[in-house]
Nucleic acid binder design. Structure first.
Length: 515
RNA sequence: GGCCCGGUCGUCUAGUGGUUUAGGACAUCGCCCUUUCACGGCGAAGAUCGCGGGUUCGAGUCCCGUCCGGGCUACCA
């Protein structure tokens, strides 16, 4: 039988990296095996469901390039793919009826207060909390009929077999078993008639012929309930695969507390989808060899359940940055420019930096936003010039956002000058002569198409003429005059891109700071 | 509290009884390259494999115990 998996998110908020990894593993697994990957929306909790969130899921998945063979957006033989719609279509009604007949489910009329009271007593007596019986599990048909006649609201619970062992064979953890007496009877149908995850998901998994339930470790505790449900119906159980979770640096499950967990925020920060997926895949999974940098295709080829790890992994952004810089460097500059344009024109990019709180050690978000806007405008004004600038910075950045601040000097003549740099390099005895020399060269040797070697020869010539034993006193003041900074691409390359006009303007401006 | 899962360098991991003086990668540090930063190259430091027993000629690898961490414990998913 061919592999069929499903990504079944509950759209109640942002799509975070944990969910992305979940989706990625399934996608890789399906593709590796030539199987089917289904998107199913689990919106049985009407209070928490949000359409905006569903849209974010779709946008994020599309940005990152995870595709589905069936789903609410493309349809398929198992439509509908939204559980609320499946409920409307009456899909669950027949099955719960059957389960009731089979005796593996029962109606329970407990009120919320009664349940709470029960839990309080259980807690006080240090027993495990949960619904293990109560009066309704073993109620007589008469009692049930009377309660219905009274119009009491009820839920339908699963009757977990007692005095036995329930076990599963997890693909990652192997044999896991539970004393069935420690498993409480879960609600299958809520009082409002909506199925819970425990019911809808398992029924759908069976109906959609899901072969592998790949999900987060947090589901392991409810696996015996799900296994028992499959058994009750006499259905063949799918293979359970409980993946370790991605945790924050404190070792706890990823949440908003841990800073950026929203996948769209990583996009806004200028991470590419390739390295993001590469990185995410490597948390909790390994190709089994020493490879760290894998292309999409290599990921698909290498992915298998054997490489899955049982222990939780931490999200190490430094490694992501390394992978990302690596991917940027590997891009053809013309392609990189396209990627960059796409990035700059995605509305959320600027929005993200606009709303971001400044952080110590990080560049001011407002400045990043401003330089990104500047870069976008510069690309529109003179694409060829912008491309040359980007080529020079390509080797030095880690994220697309870095291009903003790094490229700024290419587009601004009236630069903010680093004070320390000015103090040190503009006070050299030869600086004034150097600037006069540069101005002179702008009118003679330097042309709009001059190669870096032209600039290098000129500066070396000046060095010799001045009897300087190092190139530093020539290079550094020039760099500061032209870029305002002490760091950046190779000076001669940068001068070649800037051209004599910009060089003249900036050197003249720098000379004013000499006195 | 109960049930379940997990535990190899700071981090992600390789490792399925002997080829391991435990390998790789990120980060860190040093050197080289060099006009700066970065990239790249080379190298260093960094893990008594949570701890304690046992099985075995031999254990990170198997067993038991123990500690620590995590998850679940909803008419949420």
């Amino acid at each position: 039988m061919s592999v069929r998996v499903r990504f079944a998110p509950s759209p109640t908020g942002m799509l975070h990296v944990g969910a992305l990894r979940d989706a990625l593993f399934k996608s890789l697994f399906a593709r590796h095996n030539g199987g089917i990957n289904i998107l199913r929306i689990e919106d049985t909790d009407r209070n928490r469901y949000s359409p905006e969130s569903e849209q974010e899921f779709i946008d994020t998945l599309s940005w990152v390039g995870i595709e589905f063979d069936e789903g609410p957006h493309i349809g398929g033989p198992n439509a509908p793919y939204r559980q609320s719609e499946r409920k409307e279509a009456g899909i669950y009604a027949g099955w719960i009826e059957k389960l009731l007949e089979l005796g593996y489910a029962y109606k329970a009329f407990d009120t919320a207060q009664e349940l709470e009271q029960m839990r309080e007593i259980q807690t006080a007596q240090k027993q495990s909390t949960g619904y293990f019986g109560g009066i309704w599990r073993d109620a007589t048909p008469d009692q049930v009929e009377a309660a219905i006649a009274d119009g009491k609201p009820y839920v339908i619970r699963q009757r977990i077999p007692r005095d036995t062992t329930i076990s599963i064979e997890d693909a990652i953890r192997g044999h896991v078993e539970w004393d069935s007496n420690t498993i409480d009877d879960p609600v299958l149908i809520k009082a409002d008639g909506m199925p819970t995850y425990h019911f809808a998901s398992m029924v759908d998994d069976h109906l959609m012929e899901i072969t592998h339930i790949i999900r987060g470790e947090e589901w392991l505790s409810s696996a015996p309930k799900h296994a028992a449900l499959f058994d009750a119906f006499g259905w063949q159980r799918p293979i359970f695969v409980h993946c370790p979770v991605i945790v924050g640096t404190d070792g706890k499950k990823l949440s908003k507390r841990h800073g950026a967990t929203r996948v769209l925020d990583y996009a806004a920060q200028g991470f590419l989808k390739g390295p993001l997926k590469n990185f995410i895949a490597l948390i909790g999974w390994s190709p089994g060899d020493d490879r760290e940098i894998l292309s999409e295709q290599e990921l698909v080829d290498a992915f298998d359940l054997k490489g899955l790890q049982p222990s939780p992994g931490k999200f190490d952004i430094e490694k992501l940055r390394w992978l990302n810089g690596n991917a940027i460097r590997a891009l053809d500059p013309v392609d990189l420019l396209d990627v960059l344009i796409d990035y700059l024109r995605t509305p959320y990019t600027l929005e993200y930096f606009n709303q971001l709180e400044p952080e110590v050690g990080q560049p001011d978000p407002k400045r990043v936003e401003a330089t990104l806007i500047l870069l976008d405008r510069a690309i529109q004004d003179d694409r060829g010039y912008a491309l040359e600038a980007i080529k020079l910075e390509q080797q030095r950045v880690h994220t697309l956002a870095d291009f903003g601040i790094e490229c700024e000097f290419f587009f601004v003549d009236a630069l903010a000058m680093e004070e320390k740099a000015v103090d040190k390099w503009f006070s050299q005895p030869t600086t004034r002569a150097l600037f006069e020399f540069l101005l002179d060269q702008c009118n003679s040797t330097f042309g709009p198409d001059s190669e870096p070697s032209v600039y290098e020869e000129a500066l070396r010539e000046f060095q010799t003429a001045q009897g300087l034993d190092k190139l530093g006193p020539v290079v550094h003041p020039t760099r500061v005059a032209l870029t305002g900074k002490t760091t950046g691409p190779g000076l001669f390359e940068l001068m070649s891109v800037l051209g004599p006009e910009r060089i003249r303007t900036r050197v003249e401006r720098a000379m004013e700071l000499l006195r």
